[in-house]
């Protein structure tokens, strides 16, 4: 495998990173909404978001990407592959992060909310200043774990024809007939993205633990 081929893989890597970042950021914003809706105490809102979460947790990510890419095109919404997989991964991430964060919000002791209420803090301050900072700490291992899953999940975008790292590897492999080398390198590149994240997650967890002690 020459320099040319490696640079092509790096170009694919760039799109994998871009896709992961977009899905994580948009998914986080939407996921926070999902988590807040899921804990809102308003029955109908809670049921609706529970259904939303169930749909995305109960179907394969690949199906979700197919539906967004091919399904929406059928009803007249045309998107290029990049936009379609971004939307698909964002929806997927919002459901999973929403559920992770719902659990974390509920894991914050009730007394915290009660103390905040007794101090006449409104909903926004109660969440922003009291509940969410504690919920984030609780959720950190699961959130980082999901982010790693999400990065690896972007490889499914290759199936709808989006040239990210996995598809770039496929293309090169078909050109130079060295699948072991090429996919070895592709695997190493994924590992280089994911492993530091896992380590960083463990580091943050330790940091928060000592800070709250």
């Amino acid at each position: 495998m020459g320099r040319e081929e490696f640079l092509f893989l790096l170009a694919g890597l760039k799109w994998t990173v871009a896709l992961s970042v977009v899905a994580f950021i948009c998914g986080s914003v939407a996921g926070l909404m999902v988590a807040l809706a899921r804990t809102s105490g308003i029955f109908i809102v809670e049921r609706l978001t529970a259904g939303y979460i169930a749909v995305f947790q109960g179907t394969p990510l690949l199906m979700q990407l197919f539906v967004v890419y091919y399904g929406l095109a059928l009803i007249g919404i045309q998107m290029d592959a990049w936009a379609a997989v971004s939307v698909g991964l964002t929806l997927h991430a919002s459901a999973f992060l929403g559920e992770i964060w719902r659990g974390s919000i509920e894991a914050v002791p009730r007394g915290q909310t009660e103390a905040a209420k007794a101090l006449s803090l409104g909903y926004v301050s109660r969440m922003k200043d009291v509940v969410l900072p504690q919920a984030i700490r609780i959720s950190l291992p699961a959130t980082i774990g999901f982010l790693v899953q999400l990065i690896k999940g972007t490889s499914l975008a290759s199936i709808v024809g989006f040239t990210e790292l996995t598809r770039a590897g496929n293309i090169i492999s078909n050109q130079i007939f060295q699948p072991l080398t090429v996919f070895g390198v592709v695997g190493a590149l994924y590992f280089l993205m994911c492993c530091p994240l896992t380590i960083y997650g463990a580091h943050l967890e330790r940091k928060f633990l000592t800070a709250s002690r």
Partner: peptide, 8 residues
């Protein structure tokens, strides 16, 4: 009873 101080 349980103080309920904000631990963070």
């Amino acid at each position: 009873q349980q103080f309920n101080l904000f631990p963070h």
